[in-house]
């Protein structure tokens, strides 16, 4: 027969452990929500005094499956994460135009937030390079560049809006070009960004809309090189 005090002790400890689990889960959710909310509040509209800056957009073309640089002037905020977000939203808004060579539906804010953080030192296995070849030729520009990350190197976590992913055309080429164009544009304007990962609505997703793999870490150098790659 178990002594009464041991039974009481067991019940008390059991209740305490269940309560602590619940509290921990809730704290983790709140921390995640606060992080997302904080990044979303970082404005993309520059103050009126912000000077126009030269921005290079790496614009996708469905017909040739390539990226081409296009320089525009854009007022940009100071803070790097807000800058990255402003540049990407400008890039993606370009695709909804009537003359777009990579047509995407119109949307106000396709990129909800961009987080920049130091490149983790030991995840080489998960990194993959991507590249597109020139039209009608085998692109040999692909292939992982397994360089050792430098201290200044940043990984950009691009958090796409749910609605952007849901309304994106479904297809291997169109989704791949959107991903590559985001990676290459980030690299062109923030050279310290060497790697990119994607979230949709704050969550990890398998694909953009059924095709482009969003579980990978993309290397920006490879996607940028792809635009002018010779086989």
């Amino acid at each position: 027969m178990t002594p009464r005090y041991q039974k009481i002790l067991f019940v008390v400890l059991f209740v305490a452990s269940v309560t602590m689990t619940a509290v921990l889960v809730r704290l983790r959710e709140r921390a995640h929500d606060r992080l997302l909310a904080g990044a979303m509040e970082a404005g993309t509209t520059a103050p009126a005094v912000a000077p126009l800056e030269q921005v290079t957009l790496m614009v996708a073309d469905d017909a040739t499956s390539t990226l081409a640089p296009e320089t525009i002037a854009l007022p940009l905020p100071e803070e790097p994460q807000a800058r990255a977000r402003a540049v990407l939203n400008r890039l993606l808004s370009q695709y909804s135009g009537a003359q777009s060579l990579h047509p995407l539906p119109t949307m106000a804010e396709p990129v909800e937030s961009v987080f920049l953080m130091p490149v983790p030192q030991a995840n080489g296995d998960a990194r993959r390079a991507v590249a597109t070849g020139d039209s009608g030729r085998a692109g040999a520009a692909g292939g992982a560049i397994l360089s050792v990350p430098k201290n200044a190197d940043r990984i950009a976590i691009v958090n796409l809006a749910d609605q952007f992913a849901a309304s994106h055309p479904s297809g291997l080429e169109t989704e791949t070009l959107t991903v590559l164009s985001i990676c290459a544009t980030l690299h062109a304007n923030l050279p310290e960004v060497t790697e990119v990962r994607f979230l949709v609505g704050g969550q990890e997703r398998a694909t953009l809309h059924g095709h482009a793999d969003l579980t990978q870490t993309y290397l920006t150098a490879a996607s940028a090189a792809a635009s002018g790659a010779q086989p």
Binding site: D62, A63, S65, P103, R128, A129, V130, A131, A138, G142, G143, A144, P169, S170, G171, L172, E173, T174, T176, H211, A222
Partner: peptide, 19 residues
């Protein structure tokens, strides 16, 4: 085999893994 409304003609894709 895939099929899509986006783009034109036939899109061929090969893995980007290095040899």
């Amino acid at each position: 085999l895939h099929a899509s409304e986006a783009g034109s003609g036939v899109h061929l894709f090969v893995s980007s893994l290095p040899p």
